[in-house]
């Protein structure tokens, strides 16, 4: 086990930032913490990287206790905080060199590990970090977090605020890193990124809603889901909410995801109901649940 978290609690005043969190990450695994802002992801990262003390519970990272073995952990983990946290007034190369030096290594020594990522920004190595685009900053931050060949890599919302192209490239890089035997714990508010992880934990309000592989999580969705479309979205949502047998009604892009309370749902009956409420161009079709559907079902009050 590369990361073991056991019944961690942390609160700030009245707010329970983390409420009984337990999970395990196997060595070499890409583990995703999926949840919106305020779910407690950052607090959890800070506890695991020894930046904060838990109120209760314990955790081990790379075999070391996060409270007692502070120095050992700090030598063996790489951490990329949510906010871009490099020196904006230093150049790309100076930043990388600095982080190599403080970890007692050199760029040359671990170049093979960061090569894939660093070659993409190497043409700009004399540019100040503050002048890089979002995608390039992120690649530099990842290179800096990797330069000392950490055993465990913590990435706190690495793709927030980054355009879709850079996001895709970033995940491709993580997949390649995994092959180099680095355990990766990554957090993200994007549900669509969850599918790229080996294991995910869905988090909200300091609690873990579920932990499993992305495939298993959608497989466990308890009901058939229907996507419903009509000519007027607002009317459609209002009408579906007024349908007596509805279990959940959530807009999903151009459709609404609808679940019914009954096991023997009849789409013809719903169609008739919608038509009776002046809706036209009605389309009802069963669809596969997504991680977001599962998340909402689990978080449903």
């Amino acid at each position: 086990m590369s990361i073991q978290v056991h019944e961690i609690y942390k609160s700030y005043g009245q707010v329970n930032a983390l409420d009984n969190i337990s999970f395990e990450v196997k060595s070499g695994e890409l583990f995703g913490l999926i949840g919106p802002d305020g779910a407690g992801k950052t607090t959890l990262f800070r506890i695991l990287t020894t930046l904060l003390l838990p109120d209760r519970g314990n955790a081990r990272v790379a075999g070391y206790d996060v409270v007692r073995d502070l120095n050992a952990i700090r030598r063996h983990v790489g951490y990329m905080p949510g906010r871009f946290s490099l020196y904006q007034d230093l150049t790309v190369e100076e930043n990388l060199e600095f982080f190599a030096t403080i970890f007692g290594t050199t760029i040359a020594e671990n170049y093979d590990l960061i090569k894939d990522i660093y070659v993409q920004i190497e043409p700009f190595k004399d540019r100040r970090a503050g002048k890089l685009s979002g995608g390039m900053k992120q690649k530099l931050a990842l290179s800096c977090a990797l330069i000392h060949r950490p055993k465990v890599l913590f990435l706190d919302e690495p793709t927030t605020g980054v355009d879709p192209v850079s996001r895709k490239e970033f995940w491709e890089m993580l997949k390649r890193l995994q092959e180099k035997d680095i355990t990766i714990l990554v957090s993200t508010p994007y549900m669509d990124e969850a599918a790229l992880c080996d294991q995910i934990a869905l988090m909200q309000d300091g609690k873990i809603l579920e932990i499993d592989t992305p495939e298993a999580i959608v497989r466990h969705y308890p009901k058939p889901i229907y996507k419903v479309g009509a000519h007027d979205m607002y009317l459609l949502i209002e009408t579906l909410k007024a349908y007596p047998h509805r279990h959940s009604v959530y807009p999903f892009g151009e459709y609404v995801h609808y679940t019914d309370t009954r096991m023997d749902f009849d789409s013809g009956e719903l169609q008739t109901f919608l038509e009776a409420h002046n809706l036209s161009e009605i389309h009802i079709e069963e669809t596969a649940p997504t991680i977001e559907d599962t998340f909402m079902e689990l978080a449903k009050p």
Binding site: P36, D37, T160, I237, Y250, M296
Partner: peptide
Amino acid sequence: GGVDPITRRQFWEMIYKAAHAGTTLFVTTH
């Protein structure tokens, strides 16, 4: 951005409602 999935949907329902009432919504986003 960053809002939980359920609240996000409530938000979009508010937007649909406003559009239904004739307001034009111009959404800048990446």
